[in-house]
């Protein structure tokens, strides 16, 4: 064992010690800055993974917030714009399932008044790696006490955000000079939106979704999924949480295909309308999506307005 002690004494290089000490000082300085001095905008996400983790972390560590309603679901309902939905937190995450949102809720001491559960992407399994990482003791407590360790505080992501601000600012300035003061200010989101407007690509993707919608899931998987959901629902109900099911509008040509019909029927059998609340599908003749499933931003805003109206109709969800 004596030789092991050497590791931290003479045998251990000075350069290594200097590097560790400097790194430690840097980490402490950043930790202090983020906890007590950072401006509100000191937060950035760059991709779906970071958005999901940030969404979950903001929900988990914000003890002061008491949301009346929480939405759980997949990337379909992640498109709901909660800015206009007061007291509602959208815990739906891209690439994740309803169970991930429900699992996060289960870890929280104060539950919301109502949980809105998306029914579209029902067969996707729980991502245990995702939730285990959020609630592993080391991760949970270190991120709770040291916000600098949270996903949205990553320095490179924030640096990247600052660069982007600079790029868009310069772009506007150049346009201003070129067009003699008449600028057409395009925001970052507008740029992205322009890039993502449905086109030829949308047709192909919608076709793929159309084909997939004729395939029904295996019976045993369906039973497993409903059993899993039932256990979450009963847990929530015991805590006096109102459960509300809702189906995100998708391409109207796909909405009535076997898979969607099958899931709808199974939901109504397992959670009958007499005992559970359902928000009906909006009566839209046409629905704009990228791939048959995901609403365009415009239609997502439209659906948010519809959802707001429906929530208002239900007294228990009202704010």
């Amino acid at each position: 064992m004596g030789q092991l002690v050497l590791l931290f004494t003479s045998n251990f290089d000075v350069m290594i010690r200097k590097a560790f000490i400097l790194a430690f000082l840097g980490l402490v300085a950043y930790g202090v800055f983020v906890k007590w001095m950072a401006p509100k905008w000191w937060s950035a996400t760059q991709n779906t993974d970071q958005q999901n983790v940030t969404k979950a972390e903001n929900f988990i560590y914000d003890d002061t917030a008491s949301y009346r309603n929480v939405i759980v679901g997949s990337s379909l309902s992640a498109r709901i714009v909660t800015d206009s939905l007061q007291d509602t937190y959208n815990l739906a995450m891209g690439g994740q399932s309803i169970y991930d949102g429900l699992n996060i809720l289960k870890h929280r001491e104060h539950l919301p008044r109502a949980v809105l559960i998306e029914t579209n992407v029902f067969m996707r399994k729980e991502n245990k790696v995702f939730t285990n990482a959020l609630f592993s003791p080391i991760n949970y407590y270190s991120k709770k006490e040291i916000p600098a360790l949270r996903k949205d505080k990553q320095p490179i992501a924030i640096f990247s955000k600052i660069i982007l601000k600079g790029v868009y600012f310069s772009k506007d300035k150049i346009k201003e000079v070129l067009h003699g003061g008449r600028t057409s200010k395009i925001s970052i989101s507008a740029e992205i939106k322009a890039d993502n407007e449905p086109g030829d690509l949308s047709t192909k993707m919608t076709h793929d979704t159309y084909i997939e919608s004729f395939k029904l899931p295996r019976q045993e998987d369906v039973v497993d999924s409903f059993n899993n959901l039932k256990s979450y629902v009963s847990y929530m109900q015991k805590k006096n949480v109102v459960i509300v099911f809702f189906e995100m509008p998708i391409d109207t040509r796909i909405q009535e295909l076997p898979l969607q019909k099958f899931l709808r029927t199974k939901f109504l059998q397992t959670f009958p309308k007499s005992n559970y609340k359902y928000i009906p599908l909006p009566n839209w003749k046409h629905c704009n999506t990228f791939d048959g499933l995901h609403l365009t931003r415009e239609d997502a805003i439209k659906y948010t307005a519809y959802l707001k109206g429906e929530i208002k109709k239900n007294h228990c969800l009202n704010y």
């Binding site: 350069m15 290594i16 790194a23 840097g26 980490l27 505080k153």
Partner: peptide, 20 residues
Amino acid sequence: YDFVVYAILIFCIVLNSGPV
């Protein structure tokens, strides 16, 4: 001053790692 470079790398590993 290579220790500064390695300190920055450690700083980034702790704070800026991607998903495993």
